[in-house]
Design a protein around this nucleic acid. Structure first.
Length: 480
RNA sequence: GGCGCGUUCGUCUAGUGGUCUAGGACGCCGGCCUCUCACGCCGGUAACACGGGUUCGACUCCCGUACGCGCUACCA
Protein backbone atom coordinates (compact mmCIF):
# COMPACT_ATOMS: atom_id res chain seq x y z
CA UNK A 1 0.00 0.00 0.00
CA UNK A 2 2.55 2.48 -1.10
CA UNK A 3 0.33 4.89 -3.01
CA UNK A 4 -1.14 8.02 -1.48
CA UNK A 5 -4.55 7.34 -2.91
CA UNK A 6 -7.19 7.21 -0.22
CA UNK A 7 -10.95 7.18 -0.62
CA UNK A 8 -13.78 7.06 1.82
CA UNK A 9 -17.37 5.93 2.02
CA UNK A 10 -19.24 8.15 4.43
CA UNK A 11 -22.85 7.12 4.93
CA UNK A 12 -25.10 8.50 7.60
CA UNK A 13 -26.66 5.88 9.85
CA UNK A 14 -30.29 6.52 8.98
CA UNK A 15 -31.24 3.04 7.80
CA UNK A 16 -30.15 0.15 5.65
CA UNK A 17 -27.53 0.41 2.94
CA UNK A 18 -29.25 1.62 -0.20
CA UNK A 19 -28.26 0.27 -3.64
CA UNK A 20 -27.13 3.79 -4.54
CA UNK A 21 -24.96 3.77 -1.44
CA UNK A 22 -23.66 0.38 -2.42
CA UNK A 23 -22.56 1.72 -5.77
CA UNK A 24 -20.84 4.71 -4.17
CA UNK A 25 -19.09 2.41 -1.72
CA UNK A 26 -18.13 0.03 -4.50
CA UNK A 27 -16.68 2.76 -6.72
CA UNK A 28 -14.66 4.10 -3.79
CA UNK A 29 -13.42 0.60 -3.15
CA UNK A 30 -12.64 -0.20 -6.77
CA UNK A 31 -10.84 3.08 -7.27
CA UNK A 32 -8.74 2.69 -4.13
CA UNK A 33 -7.78 -0.89 -4.92
CA UNK A 34 -7.09 -0.09 -8.55
CA UNK A 35 -4.53 2.44 -7.36
CA UNK A 36 -3.15 0.26 -4.58
CA UNK A 37 -4.53 2.85 -2.19
CA UNK A 38 -6.78 2.54 0.79
CA UNK A 39 -10.37 3.12 1.69
CA UNK A 40 -11.90 4.36 4.91
CA UNK A 41 -15.43 3.89 6.23
CA UNK A 42 -16.61 6.94 8.12
CA UNK A 43 -19.98 7.26 9.78
CA UNK A 44 -21.59 10.67 9.44
CA UNK A 45 -23.79 10.68 12.49
CA UNK A 46 -23.96 14.38 13.25
CA UNK A 47 -27.71 14.58 12.85
CA UNK A 48 -29.05 13.34 16.15
CA UNK A 49 -32.64 13.67 15.02
CA UNK A 50 -32.26 11.23 12.15
CA UNK A 51 -30.00 8.77 13.91
CA UNK A 52 -31.31 5.20 13.75
CA UNK A 53 -29.97 2.82 16.41
CA UNK A 54 -28.35 -0.22 14.88
CA UNK A 55 -27.96 1.35 11.47
CA UNK A 56 -24.19 1.60 11.71
CA UNK A 57 -23.89 -2.07 12.58
CA UNK A 58 -26.21 -2.96 9.73
CA UNK A 59 -24.18 -0.87 7.28
CA UNK A 60 -20.98 -2.57 8.37
CA UNK A 61 -22.52 -6.02 8.17
CA UNK A 62 -23.84 -5.43 4.67
CA UNK A 63 -20.56 -4.02 3.39
CA UNK A 64 -18.80 -7.08 4.76
CA UNK A 65 -21.22 -9.47 3.05
CA UNK A 66 -20.76 -7.54 -0.17
CA UNK A 67 -17.02 -7.98 0.03
CA UNK A 68 -16.29 -4.27 0.16
CA UNK A 69 -13.30 -4.64 2.33
CA UNK A 70 -12.26 -1.16 3.44
CA UNK A 71 -9.01 -0.66 5.34
CA UNK A 72 -10.16 1.47 8.24
CA UNK A 73 -13.48 2.09 9.91
CA UNK A 74 -15.36 1.83 13.20
CA UNK A 75 -14.77 -1.92 13.24
CA UNK A 76 -11.24 -1.67 11.81
CA UNK A 77 -9.20 0.79 13.83
CA UNK A 78 -6.34 2.48 12.05
CA UNK A 79 -4.37 5.68 12.18
CA UNK A 80 -7.21 8.01 11.15
CA UNK A 81 -9.83 7.37 13.81
CA UNK A 82 -12.20 7.87 15.40
CA UNK A 83 -14.46 7.02 12.48
CA UNK A 84 -17.71 8.13 14.06
CA UNK A 85 -18.17 11.84 13.62
CA UNK A 86 -20.06 12.03 16.89
CA UNK A 87 -16.78 11.16 18.55
CA UNK A 88 -14.92 13.97 16.84
CA UNK A 89 -16.91 16.97 18.03
CA UNK A 90 -13.93 18.54 19.82
CA UNK A 91 -12.04 18.59 16.56
CA UNK A 92 -14.86 20.38 14.75
CA UNK A 93 -15.37 22.84 17.58
CA UNK A 94 -11.70 23.70 17.61
CA UNK A 95 -11.58 24.26 13.87
CA UNK A 96 -14.75 26.33 13.93
CA UNK A 97 -13.17 28.59 16.51
CA UNK A 98 -10.13 28.96 14.32
CA UNK A 99 -12.39 30.06 11.50
CA UNK A 100 -14.08 32.63 13.75
CA UNK A 101 -10.75 34.00 14.89
CA UNK A 102 -9.58 34.30 11.31
CA UNK A 103 -12.75 36.08 10.32
CA UNK A 104 -13.80 33.30 7.94
CA UNK A 105 -16.86 32.37 9.98
CA UNK A 106 -19.17 34.21 12.35
CA UNK A 107 -21.66 33.70 15.13
CA UNK A 108 -25.28 33.93 14.10
CA UNK A 109 -28.01 34.46 16.69
CA UNK A 110 -30.97 34.59 14.34
CA UNK A 111 -33.94 32.54 15.46
CA UNK A 112 -35.41 29.81 13.27
CA UNK A 113 -38.55 31.94 13.10
CA UNK A 114 -36.70 34.90 11.62
CA UNK A 115 -34.96 32.60 9.16
CA UNK A 116 -38.27 31.13 8.14
CA UNK A 117 -39.68 34.59 7.64
CA UNK A 118 -36.94 35.85 5.35
CA UNK A 119 -37.08 32.63 3.37
CA UNK A 120 -40.79 33.10 2.79
CA UNK A 121 -40.23 36.65 1.69
CA UNK A 122 -37.52 35.66 -0.72
CA UNK A 123 -39.60 32.88 -2.15
CA UNK A 124 -42.62 35.06 -2.69
CA UNK A 125 -40.48 37.60 -4.54
CA UNK A 126 -38.91 34.78 -6.57
CA UNK A 127 -35.48 35.26 -5.13
CA UNK A 128 -33.07 32.50 -4.31
CA UNK A 129 -33.59 31.69 -0.59
CA UNK A 130 -30.45 32.62 1.27
CA UNK A 131 -29.38 33.93 4.65
CA UNK A 132 -29.48 37.71 4.55
CA UNK A 133 -26.23 38.18 6.45
CA UNK A 134 -27.79 39.98 9.39
CA UNK A 135 -25.24 38.65 11.89
CA UNK A 136 -22.30 39.05 9.58
CA UNK A 137 -21.45 42.47 10.90
CA UNK A 138 -22.34 42.25 14.56
CA UNK A 139 -19.97 44.28 16.73
CA UNK A 140 -17.69 42.44 19.12
CA UNK A 141 -19.61 43.80 22.08
CA UNK A 142 -22.93 42.65 20.62
CA UNK A 143 -21.46 39.21 20.08
CA UNK A 144 -20.00 38.87 23.56
CA UNK A 145 -23.18 40.21 25.08
CA UNK A 146 -25.25 37.59 23.21
CA UNK A 147 -22.82 34.86 24.10
CA UNK A 148 -22.78 35.79 27.76
CA UNK A 149 -26.53 35.97 28.00
CA UNK A 150 -26.65 32.39 26.74
CA UNK A 151 -28.45 33.14 23.49
CA UNK A 152 -28.51 30.10 21.20
CA UNK A 153 -26.25 30.50 18.22
CA UNK A 154 -24.90 28.78 15.17
CA UNK A 155 -21.63 29.38 13.38
CA UNK A 156 -21.82 30.35 9.74
CA UNK A 157 -19.30 30.33 6.94
CA UNK A 158 -18.55 33.74 5.52
CA UNK A 159 -18.80 33.27 1.77
CA UNK A 160 -17.43 35.88 -0.63
CA UNK A 161 -20.19 38.21 -1.83
CA UNK A 162 -19.02 38.42 -5.39
CA UNK A 163 -16.86 36.63 -7.90
CA UNK A 164 -17.28 33.07 -8.95
CA UNK A 165 -16.17 29.65 -7.76
CA UNK A 166 -14.91 27.25 -10.35
CA UNK A 167 -13.56 23.80 -9.91
CA UNK A 168 -12.84 20.72 -11.93
CA UNK A 169 -14.78 17.60 -11.20
CA UNK A 170 -13.24 14.37 -12.42
CA UNK A 171 -16.52 13.33 -13.96
CA UNK A 172 -18.25 16.59 -14.80
CA UNK A 173 -15.18 18.62 -15.69
CA UNK A 174 -15.43 22.40 -15.26
CA UNK A 175 -18.22 23.64 -12.97
CA UNK A 176 -18.83 27.34 -12.33
CA UNK A 177 -21.05 28.88 -9.66
CA UNK A 178 -21.59 32.58 -8.87
CA UNK A 179 -20.56 33.29 -5.27
CA UNK A 180 -23.46 35.65 -4.60
CA UNK A 181 -25.77 32.67 -5.00
CA UNK A 182 -24.03 30.61 -2.35
CA UNK A 183 -25.45 30.69 1.15
CA UNK A 184 -23.49 31.45 4.31
CA UNK A 185 -23.65 27.81 5.26
CA UNK A 186 -24.17 26.83 8.87
CA UNK A 187 -21.03 25.06 10.08
CA UNK A 188 -21.93 24.38 13.70
CA UNK A 189 -25.55 23.86 14.67
CA UNK A 190 -27.05 25.26 17.86
CA UNK A 191 -26.73 21.82 19.46
CA UNK A 192 -22.97 22.10 19.01
CA UNK A 193 -22.76 19.43 16.34
CA UNK A 194 -21.20 20.29 13.01
CA UNK A 195 -23.08 20.13 9.73
CA UNK A 196 -21.96 17.81 6.96
CA UNK A 197 -20.13 20.63 5.24
CA UNK A 198 -17.73 21.39 8.05
CA UNK A 199 -17.28 17.84 9.24
CA UNK A 200 -16.59 16.29 5.86
CA UNK A 201 -13.97 18.88 4.98
CA UNK A 202 -12.11 18.53 8.27
CA UNK A 203 -12.30 14.75 8.27
CA UNK A 204 -11.34 14.35 4.64
CA UNK A 205 -8.27 16.45 5.29
CA UNK A 206 -7.30 14.87 8.59
CA UNK A 207 -7.85 11.38 7.23
CA UNK A 208 -5.75 12.08 4.18
CA UNK A 209 -8.52 11.51 1.65
CA UNK A 210 -7.12 12.11 -1.83
CA UNK A 211 -10.31 11.51 -3.82
CA UNK A 212 -13.84 12.30 -2.80
CA UNK A 213 -16.21 10.06 -4.73
CA UNK A 214 -19.85 10.67 -3.88
CA UNK A 215 -23.30 11.30 -5.30
CA UNK A 216 -24.19 14.15 -7.59
CA UNK A 217 -26.40 15.72 -4.95
CA UNK A 218 -23.22 17.18 -3.43
CA UNK A 219 -21.98 18.88 -6.55
CA UNK A 220 -23.36 22.32 -5.71
CA UNK A 221 -21.91 22.35 -2.22
CA UNK A 222 -18.37 21.94 -3.46
CA UNK A 223 -17.74 25.72 -3.58
CA UNK A 224 -18.53 25.94 0.14
CA UNK A 225 -16.16 23.10 0.84
CA UNK A 226 -13.47 24.66 -1.28
CA UNK A 227 -13.83 27.92 0.63
CA UNK A 228 -13.25 25.94 3.81
CA UNK A 229 -10.14 24.25 2.44
CA UNK A 230 -8.88 27.67 1.47
CA UNK A 231 -9.55 29.14 4.91
CA UNK A 232 -7.68 26.29 6.57
CA UNK A 233 -4.92 26.49 3.95
CA UNK A 234 -5.40 22.86 3.08
CA UNK A 235 -5.07 21.20 -0.27
CA UNK A 236 -8.51 20.03 -1.37
CA UNK A 237 -8.95 16.45 -2.55
CA UNK A 238 -9.91 15.59 -6.11
CA UNK A 239 -13.67 15.50 -6.58
CA UNK A 240 -15.77 12.99 -8.49
CA UNK A 241 -19.55 13.33 -8.42
CA UNK A 242 -21.42 10.24 -9.48
CA UNK A 243 -24.63 10.27 -11.52
CA UNK A 244 -27.73 9.27 -9.60
CA UNK A 245 -29.49 5.93 -9.70
CA UNK A 246 -33.06 6.29 -10.92
CA UNK A 247 -36.46 4.65 -10.72
CA UNK A 248 -37.99 3.33 -13.96
CA UNK A 249 -39.77 6.68 -14.29
CA UNK A 250 -36.38 8.42 -14.01
CA UNK A 251 -36.98 9.97 -10.62
CA UNK A 252 -34.32 9.56 -7.97
CA UNK A 253 -34.26 5.92 -6.87
CA UNK A 254 -36.59 5.47 -3.94
CA UNK A 255 -38.26 2.92 -1.77
CA UNK A 256 -41.64 3.78 -3.18
CA UNK A 257 -40.92 1.99 -6.44
CA UNK A 258 -39.51 -1.34 -5.35
CA UNK A 259 -36.71 -2.52 -3.19
CA UNK A 260 -33.66 -0.40 -2.66
CA UNK A 261 -32.14 -1.91 0.49
CA UNK A 262 -29.18 -4.15 -0.23
CA UNK A 263 -30.13 -6.36 2.70
CA UNK A 264 -33.46 -6.97 1.10
CA UNK A 265 -31.87 -8.15 -2.15
CA UNK A 266 -29.59 -10.41 -0.17
CA UNK A 267 -32.59 -11.71 1.71
CA UNK A 268 -34.36 -12.51 -1.55
CA UNK A 269 -31.48 -14.60 -2.72
CA UNK A 270 -29.42 -12.34 -4.94
CA UNK A 271 -25.73 -13.15 -4.86
CA UNK A 272 -23.38 -10.43 -3.60
CA UNK A 273 -21.14 -10.96 -6.61
CA UNK A 274 -24.05 -10.47 -9.00
CA UNK A 275 -25.25 -7.38 -7.15
CA UNK A 276 -21.78 -5.86 -7.26
CA UNK A 277 -21.40 -6.72 -10.93
CA UNK A 278 -24.75 -5.21 -11.77
CA UNK A 279 -24.38 -2.07 -9.73
CA UNK A 280 -20.83 -1.47 -10.99
CA UNK A 281 -22.16 -1.32 -14.53
CA UNK A 282 -24.76 1.30 -13.64
CA UNK A 283 -22.98 4.43 -14.71
CA UNK A 284 -19.66 2.91 -15.55
CA UNK A 285 -18.46 0.65 -18.32
CA UNK A 286 -14.97 -0.62 -19.09
CA UNK A 287 -15.57 -0.27 -22.81
CA UNK A 288 -15.58 -3.90 -23.83
CA UNK A 289 -18.57 -6.10 -24.57
CA UNK A 290 -18.25 -8.24 -21.49
CA UNK A 291 -21.17 -8.39 -19.06
CA UNK A 292 -19.88 -10.59 -16.26
CA UNK A 293 -16.96 -9.42 -14.18
CA UNK A 294 -15.44 -10.80 -11.02
CA UNK A 295 -14.54 -8.33 -8.30
CA UNK A 296 -10.81 -8.57 -9.12
CA UNK A 297 -11.64 -7.84 -12.75
CA UNK A 298 -13.70 -4.82 -11.75
CA UNK A 299 -10.79 -3.58 -9.65
CA UNK A 300 -8.40 -4.03 -12.51
CA UNK A 301 -10.58 -2.26 -15.05
CA UNK A 302 -12.11 0.53 -13.00
CA UNK A 303 -11.41 4.13 -13.81
CA UNK A 304 -13.27 7.34 -13.00
CA UNK A 305 -12.71 8.61 -16.52
CA UNK A 306 -15.15 6.00 -17.76
CA UNK A 307 -17.92 6.92 -15.35
CA UNK A 308 -20.93 8.35 -17.19
CA UNK A 309 -22.44 11.75 -16.55
CA UNK A 310 -26.10 10.90 -16.73
CA UNK A 311 -28.32 9.04 -14.29
CA UNK A 312 -28.95 5.31 -14.70
CA UNK A 313 -32.26 3.51 -14.26
CA UNK A 314 -32.05 0.54 -11.93
CA UNK A 315 -33.41 -2.21 -14.18
CA UNK A 316 -34.48 -5.16 -12.09
CA UNK A 317 -34.93 -7.36 -15.18
CA UNK A 318 -31.30 -7.15 -16.05
CA UNK A 319 -30.32 -7.81 -12.45
CA UNK A 320 -32.51 -10.90 -12.54
CA UNK A 321 -30.82 -12.14 -15.67
CA UNK A 322 -27.37 -11.47 -14.29
CA UNK A 323 -28.15 -13.13 -10.99
CA UNK A 324 -29.46 -16.17 -12.89
CA UNK A 325 -26.16 -16.31 -14.74
CA UNK A 326 -24.26 -16.33 -11.46
CA UNK A 327 -26.61 -18.90 -9.97
CA UNK A 328 -25.98 -21.28 -12.85
CA UNK A 329 -22.25 -20.77 -12.63
CA UNK A 330 -22.13 -21.98 -9.04
CA UNK A 331 -20.68 -25.41 -8.32
CA UNK A 332 -23.31 -27.98 -7.25
CA UNK A 333 -22.03 -27.70 -3.68
CA UNK A 334 -22.19 -23.91 -3.55
CA UNK A 335 -25.54 -23.96 -5.26
CA UNK A 336 -26.93 -26.29 -2.65
CA UNK A 337 -25.53 -24.25 0.17
CA UNK A 338 -26.94 -21.05 -1.26
CA UNK A 339 -30.38 -22.34 -2.19
CA UNK A 340 -31.10 -24.56 0.82
CA UNK A 341 -32.03 -21.67 3.15
CA UNK A 342 -34.67 -20.56 0.68
CA UNK A 343 -36.25 -23.97 0.71
CA UNK A 344 -36.32 -23.81 4.49
CA UNK A 345 -37.72 -20.29 4.39
CA UNK A 346 -40.51 -21.52 2.13
CA UNK A 347 -41.46 -23.95 4.86
CA UNK A 348 -40.40 -27.14 3.09
CA UNK A 349 -39.02 -30.18 4.85
CA UNK A 350 -35.34 -30.50 3.98
CA UNK A 351 -34.34 -33.22 6.41
CA UNK A 352 -33.75 -35.73 3.61
CA UNK A 353 -30.48 -34.36 2.25
CA UNK A 354 -30.24 -36.55 -0.82
CA UNK A 355 -33.77 -35.70 -1.83
CA UNK A 356 -33.27 -32.01 -1.15
CA UNK A 357 -30.18 -32.02 -3.30
CA UNK A 358 -32.12 -33.59 -6.16
CA UNK A 359 -34.86 -31.02 -5.85
CA UNK A 360 -32.41 -28.15 -5.95
CA UNK A 361 -30.73 -29.70 -8.94
CA UNK A 362 -34.08 -30.09 -10.68
CA UNK A 363 -35.12 -26.46 -10.42
CA UNK A 364 -32.08 -24.21 -10.14
CA UNK A 365 -31.92 -23.45 -13.85
CA UNK A 366 -35.34 -21.89 -13.64
CA UNK A 367 -34.40 -19.34 -10.97
CA UNK A 368 -33.45 -15.71 -11.17
CA UNK A 369 -33.02 -15.47 -7.42
CA UNK A 370 -33.24 -17.74 -4.41
CA UNK A 371 -36.66 -16.79 -3.11
CA UNK A 372 -38.22 -18.18 -6.28
CA UNK A 373 -37.38 -21.56 -4.82
CA UNK A 374 -40.68 -21.37 -2.97
CA UNK A 375 -42.79 -21.45 -6.12
CA UNK A 376 -40.49 -23.50 -8.31
CA UNK A 377 -40.03 -26.38 -5.87
CA UNK A 378 -43.53 -26.49 -4.45
CA UNK A 379 -44.51 -29.40 -6.73
CA UNK A 380 -42.21 -31.68 -4.75
CA UNK A 381 -43.83 -30.87 -1.44
CA UNK A 382 -47.56 -31.12 -2.03
CA UNK A 383 -49.41 -34.16 -0.74
CA UNK A 384 -52.36 -33.90 -3.04
CA UNK A 385 -52.87 -33.00 -6.64
CA UNK A 386 -54.03 -29.43 -7.03
CA UNK A 387 -54.94 -28.23 -10.50
CA UNK A 388 -54.40 -24.51 -10.34
CA UNK A 389 -54.27 -23.44 -13.94
CA UNK A 390 -56.87 -23.58 -16.68
CA UNK A 391 -54.42 -25.00 -19.19
CA UNK A 392 -53.72 -27.95 -16.94
CA UNK A 393 -57.40 -28.59 -16.43
CA UNK A 394 -57.87 -28.66 -20.19
CA UNK A 395 -55.19 -31.29 -20.54
CA UNK A 396 -56.86 -33.59 -18.03
CA UNK A 397 -60.32 -33.47 -19.56
CA UNK A 398 -59.04 -34.67 -22.93
CA UNK A 399 -60.23 -38.23 -23.67
CA UNK A 400 -56.76 -39.30 -24.74
CA UNK A 401 -55.43 -38.16 -21.40
CA UNK A 402 -57.75 -40.45 -19.49
CA UNK A 403 -56.59 -43.28 -21.70
CA UNK A 404 -52.92 -42.52 -21.09
CA UNK A 405 -53.41 -42.16 -17.37
CA UNK A 406 -55.35 -45.41 -17.06
CA UNK A 407 -52.74 -47.39 -18.96
CA UNK A 408 -49.96 -45.72 -17.05
CA UNK A 409 -51.51 -46.60 -13.71
CA UNK A 410 -51.97 -50.22 -14.68
CA UNK A 411 -48.33 -50.50 -15.75
CA UNK A 412 -47.21 -48.79 -12.61
CA UNK A 413 -48.97 -51.40 -10.49
CA UNK A 414 -46.89 -54.11 -12.07
CA UNK A 415 -43.56 -52.70 -10.92
CA UNK A 416 -42.10 -52.54 -7.44
CA UNK A 417 -40.34 -49.25 -7.76
CA UNK A 418 -39.83 -46.43 -10.21
CA UNK A 419 -36.64 -45.03 -11.62
CA UNK A 420 -35.80 -43.22 -14.82
CA UNK A 421 -35.35 -46.40 -16.88
CA UNK A 422 -38.48 -48.11 -15.61
CA UNK A 423 -40.45 -44.91 -16.16
CA UNK A 424 -39.23 -44.61 -19.73
CA UNK A 425 -40.15 -48.22 -20.36
CA UNK A 426 -43.62 -47.72 -19.04
CA UNK A 427 -44.08 -44.67 -21.19
CA UNK A 428 -42.94 -46.59 -24.25
CA UNK A 429 -45.43 -49.35 -23.53
CA UNK A 430 -48.24 -46.89 -22.94
CA UNK A 431 -47.40 -45.31 -26.25
CA UNK A 432 -47.52 -48.63 -28.06
CA UNK A 433 -50.75 -49.74 -26.45
CA UNK A 434 -52.63 -46.50 -26.92
CA UNK A 435 -51.01 -45.20 -30.07
CA UNK A 436 -50.77 -41.83 -28.34
CA UNK A 437 -47.42 -40.07 -28.47
CA UNK A 438 -45.55 -36.87 -27.97
CA UNK A 439 -47.28 -34.09 -26.09
CA UNK A 440 -50.57 -35.99 -25.78
CA UNK A 441 -48.68 -38.79 -24.11
CA UNK A 442 -46.41 -36.85 -21.78
CA UNK A 443 -48.46 -33.84 -20.83
CA UNK A 444 -51.20 -35.78 -19.01
CA UNK A 445 -48.55 -37.39 -16.84
CA UNK A 446 -46.93 -34.04 -16.15
CA UNK A 447 -50.20 -32.43 -15.17
CA UNK A 448 -51.18 -35.45 -13.09
CA UNK A 449 -47.97 -35.20 -11.12
CA UNK A 450 -47.45 -31.47 -10.84
CA UNK A 451 -50.79 -29.84 -11.52
CA UNK A 452 -49.22 -27.50 -14.04
CA UNK A 453 -48.13 -27.65 -17.67
CA UNK A 454 -44.54 -26.65 -17.11
CA UNK A 455 -41.67 -27.70 -14.91
CA UNK A 456 -38.50 -29.78 -14.75
CA UNK A 457 -37.89 -32.85 -16.91
CA UNK A 458 -40.45 -35.54 -16.12
CA UNK A 459 -37.96 -38.35 -15.44
CA UNK A 460 -36.33 -36.10 -12.87
CA UNK A 461 -39.69 -35.41 -11.29
CA UNK A 462 -40.76 -39.04 -11.09
CA UNK A 463 -37.54 -40.13 -9.49
CA UNK A 464 -37.95 -37.58 -6.73
CA UNK A 465 -41.63 -38.48 -6.28
CA UNK A 466 -41.33 -42.27 -5.88
CA UNK A 467 -43.87 -44.91 -6.77
CA UNK A 468 -46.41 -44.41 -4.01
CA UNK A 469 -46.87 -40.71 -4.60
CA UNK A 470 -46.96 -41.13 -8.36
CA UNK A 471 -49.63 -43.76 -8.06
CA UNK A 472 -51.70 -41.63 -5.72
CA UNK A 473 -51.47 -38.51 -7.87
CA UNK A 474 -52.27 -40.31 -11.10
CA UNK A 475 -55.31 -41.90 -9.47
CA UNK A 476 -56.46 -38.46 -8.37
CA UNK A 477 -55.95 -37.12 -11.87
CA UNK A 478 -57.91 -39.99 -13.33
CA UNK A 479 -60.80 -39.22 -11.03
CA UNK A 480 -60.67 -35.55 -11.95
C1' G B 1 -38.79 30.61 -9.34
C1' G B 2 -33.14 30.76 -9.20
C1' C B 3 -28.79 28.02 -9.95
C1' G B 4 -26.25 23.56 -11.48
C1' C B 5 -25.82 19.02 -14.08
C1' G B 6 -27.45 15.93 -17.84
C1' U B 7 -29.84 14.00 -22.84
C1' U B 8 -27.40 7.33 -28.22
C1' C B 9 -32.54 1.47 -28.94
C1' G B 10 -38.11 0.65 -23.63
C1' U B 11 -33.55 -0.11 -20.10
C1' C B 12 -27.87 -0.47 -19.12
C1' U B 13 -24.37 1.10 -22.56
C1' A B 14 -20.06 1.27 -26.88
C1' G B 15 -18.85 5.44 -29.69
C1' U B 16 -13.78 11.01 -28.26
C1' G B 17 -14.82 14.52 -36.52
C1' G B 18 -14.69 10.39 -41.64
C1' U B 19 -14.15 2.95 -39.81
C1' C B 20 -21.81 4.44 -38.08
C1' U B 21 -26.28 1.72 -43.71
C1' A B 22 -24.49 3.43 -35.03
C1' G B 23 -21.82 -2.10 -31.91
C1' G B 24 -22.96 -5.20 -27.29
C1' A B 25 -26.30 -6.66 -23.18
C1' C B 26 -31.30 -7.00 -20.74
C1' G B 27 -36.34 -7.03 -22.34
C1' C B 28 -39.55 -8.19 -26.32
C1' C B 29 -40.63 -11.19 -30.94
C1' G B 30 -39.42 -15.59 -34.00
C1' G B 31 -36.70 -20.26 -34.70
C1' C B 32 -33.84 -24.59 -32.95
C1' C B 33 -33.51 -28.13 -28.82
C1' U B 34 -37.75 -30.64 -26.34
C1' C B 35 -43.32 -34.00 -23.15
C1' U B 36 -43.74 -28.61 -21.12
C1' C B 37 -41.54 -24.40 -19.04
C1' A B 38 -36.77 -22.89 -18.09
C1' C B 39 -31.57 -23.30 -19.58
C1' G B 40 -28.68 -23.17 -24.02
C1' C B 41 -28.02 -21.88 -29.20
C1' C B 42 -29.48 -18.97 -33.68
C1' G B 43 -32.04 -14.81 -35.79
C1' G B 44 -35.10 -10.33 -35.57
C1' U B 45 -37.19 -5.57 -33.44
C1' A B 46 -35.53 -0.90 -31.71
C1' A B 47 -31.81 4.88 -30.60
C1' C B 48 -27.97 9.58 -31.91
C1' A B 49 -34.16 15.07 -28.02
C1' C B 50 -34.88 19.45 -31.36
C1' G B 51 -32.96 23.87 -33.99
C1' G B 52 -28.95 26.66 -35.46
C1' G B 53 -23.83 27.12 -36.32
C1' U B 54 -18.21 25.41 -36.99
C1' U B 55 -16.20 22.00 -40.76
C1' C B 56 -14.96 19.26 -47.08
C1' G B 57 -17.52 16.11 -43.34
C1' A B 58 -20.85 15.83 -37.32
C1' C B 59 -23.59 10.94 -32.60
C1' U B 60 -18.94 13.20 -31.74
C1' C B 61 -17.04 20.58 -31.24
C1' C B 62 -19.93 25.51 -30.09
C1' C B 63 -24.65 28.16 -29.12
C1' G B 64 -29.85 28.11 -28.24
C1' U B 65 -34.54 25.53 -27.17
C1' A B 66 -37.09 21.53 -25.00
C1' C B 67 -37.20 17.85 -21.55
C1' G B 68 -35.28 15.26 -17.16
C1' C B 69 -32.84 15.29 -12.67
C1' G B 70 -30.27 17.62 -8.61
C1' C B 71 -29.41 21.73 -5.19
C1' U B 72 -31.85 25.74 -3.06
C1' A B 73 -32.55 23.09 5.69
C1' C B 74 -29.66 24.40 12.49
C1' C B 75 -30.50 16.61 6.73
C1' A B 76 -26.87 14.14 5.04
Amino acid sequence: MSSNICTRFAPSPTGFLHVGGLRTALYNYLFARNHAGKMILRIEDTDRARFVPGATESLIRTLRVMGIDYDEGPDKPGSSGPYLQSERTDIYQQHAEQLINQGDAYYCFCTPERLEQIRKQQESSNQQPKYDGYCRNLTTSEISHNLESGKPYVIRLKMPLQGESRFTDLIREEVVVQNELIDDQILIKSDGFPTYHLANVIDDHLMGISHVIRGEEWLLSVPKHLRLYQAFEWKPPAMAHLPLLLNPDKSKLSKRQGDVAVEEFLEKGYLPEALNNFVALLGWNPGDNQEIYTLPQLIEKFSLERVNKSGAVFDIQKLNWLNGQYLRQLTPQDRGKFLLPHLVKAGFDTTDHARTEKIIDAVYKRLSFGAQMGTEAVIFYSDNLVISEEQARMVLVKPTSKQVLAHFLKKLDSVNEVNVDIFRNIMKEVQQETGISKEDLWMPIRVALTGVTHGPDLPVVIEIFGKEKISRFVSQALAF
